[in-house]
Design a protein around this nucleic acid. Structure first.
Lengths: 336, 336
DNA sequence: GGGGCTCCTGTTAACGGTATCATCGGGGCT
DNA sequence: AGCCCCGATGATACCGTTAACAGGAGCCCC
């Protein structure tokens, strides 16, 4: 309990416990060769003098950290939070810690984050999406560590990926809408060029409409992503003014879909008969809204878990296979 | 571009650029004593050979990291996400990086996280709430670094705090409800003993009701925190079965309040006349629901910004003052 | 009795930066 | 001229842990 100037080190423990420094070090590694009682003596001594293990020194000497670096667009999105949760839980069992950063949906910020993270020599790096700045791509390629892209199914992956085609997911929704009879269908999303997953969904919408021989020009850009429920509502208002005969709307997220829904109701339009509404993400809000929202479930948590498994596979020298997640269309009362 | 076995170090740069190792080191510190052109030579060389700065070695030698450790109950809560956002943005300007962990509303998990984080020798540690395990308190007290508790106004702070009285915030809501005429008021929260901020709000409810001479026995525990909208709806159903004459309900969060609201509407009760509903947190959902939710705005982002400022004050040797945040009551259409 | 195990412990040398102090050239001042 | 100061650079030691290797004790088996 003595409060000296310097915090105690393993050398102090060694001296007090009457063993060598190396023995102290071994006492802190769970699977190392050391007798039960020696370990107990060491750990007790450590506890007594208030020793705190120095991860920095450990990482430095062994030339590898116990970090896995992860970048996501926004902390506050429930989807990405679920992914992080699955990832963190699975990695924790191996003593790996998440180093989390968010990009604000800016590739430039992502590049900066990646650069910062690489300085820590993480065991692996996980990024969201398959599009990055030129420099970021180069950094990742030269990083000499597992690189996992998530939430997308990139045509030219840097390393591995765990994700799905955002365009394909929206196609499912369009197919459903067309099948139940909607024809004049619109799309509400964020501004193009920032949120690449949102852009992909928009492109998927256009392609799917074209495949059905339908007009795909009803596109509303609601501002920089992520677009909120309020922005979704405002976009819905603009949509109905521009195209009053719109029969259905597909939104880039459940958040915005919920906003669009409330705007419809404010105007006396009752889903699903007056208008069909679809979202994306399977957020809780879509399950409690009235009517509940038709949506796409991207299996956010599963993405995280599979990413963790993939990382562990690669680190253990097993082959790391890309994972194609199959997003599920969930039909609820907001569409026929 | 040569892809040797070992990644290049400062020594390699020094050799190639024809300067000493120490000069290379200085070239990477922004405010160090080095001529403009020497620095440029060094940095260019570094870029050419694909050098990546080793933060671990740097932190190790200088015996201080550029981390600030932060624990929050859950990643997915918009409130904590905003706090993290404010904190991270302000700290980034000083090159400090957030080391984030979540406790799942478990003090035990928090203790484990704190122990893990302290091994990294962060510059400061930020925890959510003012209640911790005995051991966690001790660890923090002995940590020899700034310790900030947030989202609470602890009676016995470990170090400093940036927060508010959760009980006091709820008192404002009760006062408002009573002032506009509600009397038989209930409270919906999570199970007691886990989420201490939620428990504090519940206690604040009971105390405030007592102060008005009103009965405070209508307390519904809706499960382990955080309680979702669906759980809020279920709790509302139970509440109305147990106490059909309830005039108003205060919920521990906007999420649960929104669920409660939908359950009321499902039963044909129209706020604010048939029943009053209040939430907590000023989430977006309360601003887009119909009717919009009366709530408390805890200034989540401000908490993060003030926490960052407090940390920088202390690190710079300035006096660090505790910050009392004043949560604002926002009256909307869900209450009279 | 000796060779070859296994199990445990110790010795030594790093890992890649930075703190610290020394050195050196040149300009301004007395 | 002599002195000091200042900006720029270099030499060296060292941060706390672990990799790698070297024993030594005890045991089994031929």
């Amino acid at each position: 309990m003595a409060d000296n100037r310097k915090p105690p080190t393993m050398a102090d423990i060694a001296r007090i416990a009457g063993v060598s420094l190396m023995t102290v070090s071994r006492a802190f590694k769970p699977d190392s060769l050391i007798s039960r009682e020696t370990r107990e003596t060491v750990l007790t001594t450590a506890e007594n003098i208030g020793y705190v293990f120095d991860s920095t020194a450990s990482n430095f000497r062994s030339q590898k950290s116990d970090f896995v670096a992860v970048t996501i667009p926004a902390i506050s999105s429930p989807n990405f939070a679920d992914t992080i949760g699955g990832l963190a839980d699975r990695l924790a069992s191996r003593g790996l810690q998440i180093l989390l950063g968010y990009t604000n949906y800016h590739m430039q910020d992502e590049e900066r984050l990646i650069e910062q993270f690489l300085r820590r020599k993480p065991q692996a790096i996980v990024v969201t999406g398959g599009r990055h700045t030129e420099r970021a791509r180069k950094l990742l390629q030269n990083a000499h560590m597992p690189v996992i892209e998530t939430w997308d199914s990139p045509s030219e992956p840097i390393g591995n990926y765990v994700g799905f085609s955002n365009a394909g997911a929206v196609r499912q929704m369009v197919d459903h809408f067309v099948a139940v009879g909607y024809r004049r269908i619109a799309f509400i999303g964020g501004d193009v060029g920032r949120d690449t997953r949102g852009s992909d969904r928009r492109m998927g919408f256009v392609a799917a409409m074209a495949a059905h021989g339908l007009d795909a020009s009803r596109l509303i850009a609601a501002g920089p992503p992520p677009i909120s429920a309020l922005e979704g509502a405002a976009a819905m208002a603009r949509l109905l003014e521009a195209y009053p005969d719109t029969e259905a709307v597909i939104c880039v997220s459940d958040q915005s879909a919920f906003g669009a829904l409330t705007e419809c109701q404010r105007r006396g339009l009752t889903p699903p008969t007056d208008i069909g509404v679809g979202g994306f993400g399977n957020f809780e809000i879509g399950a409690v809204s009235n009517p509940r929202l038709t949506t796409i479930d991207p299996s956010s948590r599963l993405i995280g878990e599979r990413t963790a498994a993939l990382i562990l596979d690669i680190l253990d020298g097993r082959p790391g296979d890309n994972v194609e997640i199959a997003p599920a269309l969930i039909v609820r009362e907001s569409s026929r």
